[in-house]
Design a protein around this nucleic acid. Structure first.
Lengths: 207, 207
DNA sequence: ATTCCGTCCGACCGGTCGGTCGGTATCAAA
DNA sequence: TTTGATACCGACCGACCGGTCGGACGGAAT
């Protein structure tokens, strides 16, 4: 299913991502996507069999991107917390770079699945892979006595909440931070705040 | 605008809350709400001028409830962190009691406002009041030297992320916790995990 | 008995939704 | 030069959307 041609398909995906991220699946019409891309609505259905398929392709693209970025980030660290933090930092970077990722990700995390069983499974596996990577690092830290014996699922939820939600919180976030959530200074501070909170919260001994 | 009769209006609000929370504003039709309540669609428009007004009424109801619960929770605590934590605990209780609250709240937090300026302001003020209450308590703790000099907005975002997101995360949360997020045991553990993370993360000296 | 009002309904409106269909232009392989 | 596949379009479809309208029913006040 690759040789359909890259250019238009890619433009459709990018445009749809922004719209879906901003307003959600059902509030975005195929007509609107088509107009923004500069194609006819029929052309969209040439590239994607249905609206749902387009949506799933958008989500998968994001998950694959995050997974690849985490994978690419080498981790020669021996320190358990440093390894956990390294992955979190990479994820924060990708979320801060493109807010649409964060918003769309948050949607898929808490929205009821209207999804077909087949593709749902695929996306779930991608997501599980990303979470498992961080979860296992925490578990190893606990086993080695470096980290407190926290609940892995609960800690993952906290991490997701502190990262994905932060960069997805649109109007409210902008009200709290004055429209500068995504500025490099604010991103740096976000990292620092989360880092301190997690370090003190997770480590057994703080130096 | 009170003597419209409580019964039907209340049933509409409750039904709409569940639907809006599960699938969002645009994915829910007035016909569906009407059918679930057992009324005709026209009857809904008798009680609420438009779909948007119904949605705003649902959101306001939730915010007022949370605000009232926080207000009702007396806080004779002299300890700064205990006061902060007390409010967080109350909020966690209300979110855990009715998942629809958490989900709908999360939606309004990060979804773009399609809202009219007037009512938007009203809801924003309610939300700001709830956040300010916790924020000021943290600030006082910092001023008194009990809490680390953290960024108030960032800390608020972290708290929201750890509480609202957790109880709003539908399928993903259920996959992590085995369909028991809202069980009293899991809620208790959630409190404990968040408590430990915040206590160690915020306090200057941990005893 | 009449008036009035809150509550509710069925029928209907214009518009938009996701999706289909027949057809055209292009280009490469035969 | 024909064939076939890719990319695209305009016109169209049935279903459904939020919202309106005129009227029916019942109880309370006059």
């Amino acid at each position: 299913m690759q040789p359909i041609a890259p250019s238009s398909r890619e433009k459709i995906l990018e445009t749809a991502e922004v719209l879906f991220a901003a307003r959600g699946f059902s509030a975005v019409g195929m007509r609107e996507v088509a107009d923004r891309v500069g194609l006819s609505k029929s052309a969209l259905f040439h590239h994607f069999a249905s609206k749902l398929e387009l949506y799933l392709a958008v989500v998968e693209r994001i998950l694959v991107d995050i997974d690849a970025r985490q994978e690419a980030a080498a981790q020669p660290k021996s320190d358990a917390f440093e390894r956990v933090w390294h992955w979190i930092e990479v994820t924060i970077d990708t979320l801060a770079e493109n807010p649409s990722h964060a918003r769309l990700l948050l949607r898929t995390l808490f929205e009821e699945d209207d999804v077909a069983p087949e593709d749902e499974d695929h996306l779930d596996q991608l997501l599980a892979k990303i979470l498992r990577r961080v979860g296992q690092a925490i578990q190893e830290g606990i086993d080695r006595g470096e980290l407190r014996p926290v609940s892995i699922p609960h800690t993952l939820q906290s991490i997701v909440g502190m990262t994905v939600y932060h960069f997805a919180s649109g109007p409210v976030g902008e009200k709290l931070f004055g429209d500068e959530i995504y500025s490099s200074a604010q991103v740096r501070q976000r990292k620092e705040e989360v880092f301190q909170l997690l370090r003190r919260g997770l480590l057994v001994t703080i130096d």
